[in-house]
Design a protein around this nucleic acid. Structure first.
Lengths: 196, 196
DNA sequence: TACCTGAGTTGACGGCGTCACATGAGTGCG
DNA sequence: CGCACTCATGTGACGCCGTCAACTCAGGTA
């Protein structure tokens, strides 16, 4: 099995090299030639492990979706946290990826959503997230509010990432926006509860 | 002046050709060779009017920001509409660009925010939008809520665009999310009003 | 008319993704 | 032990791409 071990090592070296290049220099820096060079192989070697460049990038995105799902699952399972804290933590986890690895974040949402691997990994995250939302607004409203909260966090991350929240006009940080969003939805739900 | 007229016509033909190629085939289809061909000139002609490809794309993004700002300004000035309707209209205008011209929408938010032209055009939109938000939540809170609402709409557009809202799990449309968001913020503000 | 200015064309360069083919080391079988 | 085979990898080539420099040539000017 020495043969397949070496091949597996090369494969993961390619993925790691591509991820590093993406973080360091953005999508333009991710060249199969550069990926091969950093992984210690030639420019044609990736074709032995991935159908093409896009498939290599998709694998990176899937890994990112999965690791974010893991992070949110840990938040959901934390017995110390309040429902609000769990929700804010989940939203900030998404935004945190955008801050720490902006190019990876963009890749995650630009990878085709009909890819089964990507859809599965993103679905894992959505399930964990929905469970957290349900803890705050109830099962029946979790879908609607979950979509709204996910959109909001995604938009905050996107605007931070594109620099449109950094302009002096909006002196608001993502943390504050997340807190406002959670408060707004909580008060909306309480309104409904009070009326019902 | 026949000379400069022809040059101006070529310049706008290049911009139009690039926009059409972007809408039809995405960023990968926008090639200076293809742009020149569609505009009836050669592959080198764009360099007589734009420093490079990126500057051509930036001009397209600036035009898009400006025309969206115009649309929101018309909404703001509409005397018939209620404050809520104005706000929902503005949010849906943003989302509408994402639906009708997804590649253009992505280009708008990927163009460098430090470009003075782009920043000015985006600033026009933000000013119009802030005025609308102020009509609902008051001047003092317009900045905070404006940032949150803009983020939310941008996130809705982004998730629709990437297909993550289309999956059967979330059977929620952008219109419904916008209405929920506006309602949530309105009830939050009323809470504060009631308490104060 | 003669000059000149500048928009537009074209050839060339390096870099890219990708494919077809060559190579050579590991592997299982006799 | 040796041989044939398999498959990861290397390499040359192709057609694209953005970009630049040199050239052409029509419009405007003196």
């Amino acid at each position: 099995m020495r043969r397949t071990e070496a091949a597996a090592a090369t494969r993961s070296a390619l993925v790691r090299a591509a991820s590093e290049l993406l973080d360091e220099g953005g999508p333009g820096a991710v060249t199969l030639r550069a990926v091969g060079a950093r992984a210690g192989v030639s420019r044609g070697a990736p074709y032995g492990h991935f159908e093409n460049k896009e498939h290599l990038l998709t694998e990176i995105a899937v890994d990112a979706w999965n690791s974010l799902a893991d992070e949110v699952e840990r938040l959901r399972a934390d017995p110390e946290a309040t429902p609000s804290a769990r929700l804010e933590g989940a939203l900030l986890a998404l935004i945190g990826v955008g801050r720490r690895q902006p190019h990876l974040y963009a890749l995650m949402f630009s990878t085709p959503a009909d890819d089964p691997e990507a859809a599965g990994a993103a679905g894992r995250l959505q399930d964990q997230f929905l469970a957290i939302v349900a803890g705050l607004v109830g099962e029946s409203d979790a879908l609607r509010y979950g979509a709204l909260l996910m959109s909001s966090a995604h938009g905050i991350a996107g605007l931070e990432l594109s620099g449109h929240l950094a302009r002096e006009k909006w002196k608001v940080g993502g943390e504050q926006l997340v807190r406002m969003q959670v408060d707004a939805i909580r008060s909306g739900v309480e309104d409904v509860d009070a009326r019902g």
